[in-house]
Design a protein around this nucleic acid. Sequence first.
DNA 1: GCTCAAAATTTACGCGCGTAAAAATTATCT
DNA 2: AGATAATTTTTACGCGCGTAAATTTTGAGC
Lengths: 342, 342
Amino acid sequence: MGGAKIKNMQEFASVSGLSRPTVSKYFNDPNSVRPKTRDRIEAALVKYDYRPNIYAMNQNRRSTKTIGIVVPYLADPFFAEIARNIERRCLDEGFWPLLFSSHGEAALEIGILNSLRSLKPVGVLLAPLGRRSDRREIEAFCADVPTVLFDSNIASVGKAFIGSDNAQSIPLIVDYLCRTGTQPCFLEMPPVNPNANKRRAAFISAMERLGHEPQIVRVDGKTWDFEQVGFEGGLDMLRGRGFPTDTVLCSNDRLAIGLIAAAHELKMKVGRDSDAAIRIAGHDDHPFSRFTSPSLTTVAQDYAAISRRSVKVLFDLIEAEGEIGPRTETLFEGKLVMRNSA
Amino acid sequence: MGGAKIKNMQEFASVSGLSRPTVSKYFNDPNSVRPKTRDRIEAALVKYDYRPNIYAMNQNRRSTKTIGIVVPYLADPFFAEIARNIERRCLDEGFWPLLFSSHGEAALEIGILNSLRSLKPVGVLLAPLGRRSDRREIEAFCADVPTVLFDSNIASVGKAFIGSDNAQSIPLIVDYLCRTGTQPCFLEMPPVNPNANKRRAAFISAMERLGHEPQIVRVDGKTWDFEQVGFEGGLDMLRGRGFPTDTVLCSNDRLAIGLIAAAHELKMKVGRDSDAAIRIAGHDDHPFSRFTSPSLTTVAQDYAAISRRSVKVLFDLIEAEGEIGPRTETLFEGKLVMRNSA
DNA sequence: GCTCAAAATTTACGCGCGTAAAAATTATCT
DNA sequence: AGATAATTTTTACGCGCGTAAATTTTGAGC
């Protein structure tokens, strides 16, 4: 501080007693200049607090240091949490993460991808909206920008996919529920992404394997306000003909959270006590599922592993400059989280 | 499509049969060229799909079209929701919103502001961390970039503040609670921001005005995992000497959500029925408070009004080029939301 | 059709930086 | 110390665009 304002790299180089390209080299990699030079620059940096113009930098650079992160719905704490995780990892590696939410709208998702294209990111981590996504547009984007998909898969789009193994996690909780009480029925809403379909399919095969008839209940709802869908749908079912069995496995935790609220509204006791009227289980280990009443039995998705792997695959991709061999799909196993709702 | 790839504005101008500056003018404001010209450009645009290089654009432009949005903790659905709202409004006005979360860390908050400085945004909407924020750094930032504070105030920092009127909302729910049952005690955690202090003060004065002795309970906790703090603190209190009264007004909904879970854990019935053991109320109308069991009685912060006004004030500020008269503070009233927990 | 002001377009220059190639410096080894 | 290789620094040029000033075109009124 204290020194006069520096307005560009040339001026800063002058006050450092160096040439501009040397300073430029330093900013691209402080270790690429000799220690003595680095010290002089860093001393001047303290004194004058100059910082390079990003726009001018990125104009000619081979690669910007930005990484795009796109999630379908940021008001869902699951995505907020995973985004937080990913952001942190990018920052630690010296990249510049930019976070975007599609807010559940396909048009916005495409808008975001178009904006991202202009930003020339070195890579993008994309959790697509799913069913409503414009496949062609996303495909075109992935052809231009190194992209790793996570959470929700789109067949053969992007360089890799990282998600949860629904075919493992659903049987896990189905087995548990069958072992500890009446067989579950499956509550779902119109599928927003492939996970919903995979979970239903996994439920059916798990039940058949155990010799039970799989029973599916679908409630209506076309928003991303899943709790509300679970609440209203649950209210309808419970007030009407009831669920096929008194154990309900929900397609995801947010539905389950709504269903628990509905049961409470109707003064039905939820849980595994003998005097309970209904057992409710979920899937995801949503950040709030510890705090429902009763706390929600569910299958934990491995947030940390998914974000860690997604970022790692993207970094490898960036280093290999997009040439990383065939597209890979990585699925992480879920862990049973036994709480009090089932 | 179909046409050869265009690599810069000069080439695009050529294929459009125009000069580059005319095209440049179009991109800055399509209405600033005559209709005939605009049509030619737009026809070429469809044919060649060219888009200007943002970095080159922003390098010389008087103002970038970017607006920074900084929230303290994006995994909190309250902030996710308000950020969603603000983003949308910025997009509608033709700006380019960029969203950042401080993740509860003061160092990251400063890091974000420094990055933002480089991005030369036309304006910033900042919800500071609060108590832990580095006041000096934020002050310095606000001196350089037109900034509107929201949610959490820092005295005389930024061009304006928009938030909730705790001095109105707390008495509102205190009155309600006193009128409908035993007087409330106040549950808080170590204050993370000025709102927490204002709410406590408002509670004390509201109680005194009604002729009751204000009783405050503080639980420990230094993370942003408020539900967990409410849960553990609540468990301690309920298992120990209990709360001073059987009505607990929590400093915010997330604490209340944790406390409800704690009460349920101890098989204490929560609510306003005659057989309930405890009444619990919150503050904020957090997106999840509709789905607790029982649903949470609370005071709704006016999300929409806060985001609308924040954005409007910022736009006015931008138009006035920072010269907007004295700093203003706008507080919106809360609305009582009667549900079943109190 | 003509004049003149208003609007649109073109000319010309510079923004702040990256980077290849040339030049200078430093380090290594005999 | 001297020769050569390795590294660092400098010279020189261009990136893609914004924008002031100069020029041309357009349109209104007579």
